[in-house]
């Protein structure tokens, strides 16, 4: 915990912070690490944008490991509303309590204060995060999928770390969670939300970093094959595809190649290679766009 405190206080240089992140299994881009460190120092949420599959969600997981804190995750979706994200009254339990008190003659006021107390409140992720004694890491995933109304709701939580429950009053945060919001930019987020957050754009990793990630995750991978895989994926990202493969796809593919016993991409059977591409290409159009000749050309270049 002493180490975690040091991180919170903004202790340590960027290099040391990068090292610690690597220690928990996340090889970060320096720019991203700087943003992360600053958001811890200033205790402000970090808005992380980037293509799908560049490891945005992984940042929060790594942070929770680094700080030794619990990770609370709120997955956003269309139609997400306050009752699913913040709190909800435990209606059935309240009803039960009313029934139970029906015959002991308790006054209406007494019952009312009882059933609208915190005992009957169902805590959803956001309330749970700010109401926790120990500080947590709060991940609000794919915020761009939630409605704009919810985004506005989030502003109160993020700027003041408080939640207003009409029946109970305003609940202040007991601890400040380290908050990370991720977005795939499928819709423009409001300026108000952006202003409350620090911002970082996560890009596809360069070949050095991707290679390092690959080595770390799949130690069994041969060095030459790892280099070829990274070269192949990097050049694949330059092709005109609908959905570019992310790091997760690279790892999947490397795992698949490993288990199928490929040793060298340049000498590998092109049709066999083609079948493994299901790990990398996720739309039909991309599969059609990448003919076997193109695959062997890329594999040749990567070697």
């Amino acid at each position: 915990m002493a180490e975690a405190e040091a991180v919170e206080g903004g202790g340590g240089s960027l290099a040391a912070f990068l090292q610690r992140l690597a220690g928990v299994g996340y090889l970060a881009d320096p720019a991203l690490a700087a943003a992360l460190q600053l958001s811890l120092q200033l205790q402000r949420p970090l808005l992380l944008e980037g293509e799908a599959g560049v490891g945005k969600t992984e940042v929060a997981k790594a942070l929770s490991r680094l700080l030794g804190r619990r990770l609370i995750r709120l997955q956003c979706y269309e139609g997400l509303d306050a009752s699913a994200a913040l709190y909800e009254w435990n209606y059935q339990r309240q009803l039960l309590a009313i029934k139970a008190h029906e015959h002991d003659g308790a006054s209406a006021e007494a019952i009312e204060t009882q059933i609208f107390s915190e005992r009957y409140l169902l805590r959803r992720p956001l309330l749970e995060a700010i109401d926790s004694e120990e500080p947590v890491v709060l991940l609000i995933d794919e915020i761009d999928r939630a409605d704009e109304a919810f985004e506005a709701y989030l502003l109160e939580v993020l700027s003041d770390y408080q939640v207003t429950v009409p029946e109970l009053g305003t609940m202040e945060a007991r601890s400040t969670p380290a908050t990370i919001l991720t977005s795939n930019a499928t819709r423009a987020l409001s300026d108000a939300l952006r202003r409350r957050c620090l911002y970082a754009y996560a890009d596809f990793p360069d070949s050095e970093r991707e290679l390092a990630i690959l080595r770390q995750r799949l130690p069994a991978l041969e060095e030459t094959l790892a280099r070829q895989i990274v070269g192949f994926v990097q050049s694949l990202r330059k092709e005109d595809l609908e959905k570019l493969p992310g790091i997760a796809e690279t790892l999947d593919w490397a795992g698949a190649l490993l288990s199928l016993g490929f040793a060298d991409l340049s000498t590998a059977d092109p049709t066999g290679l083609q079948t493994t591409l299901v790990c990398l290409l996720k739309t039909e159009a991309d599969h059609k766009a990448l003919a076997p000749e193109a695959v062997s050309r890329l594999a040749g270049c990567a070697a």
């Binding site: 700087a34 944008e49 202003r195 911002y199």
Partner: peptide, 17 residues
């Protein structure tokens, strides 16, 4: 490092970043 920190503080969207 200072530049990286200022960037995450002051840039608010991809183009600015």
């Amino acid at each position: 490092e200072t530049k990286l920190r200022l960037r995450s503080l002051l840039a608010k969207r991809k183009e600015e970043w």
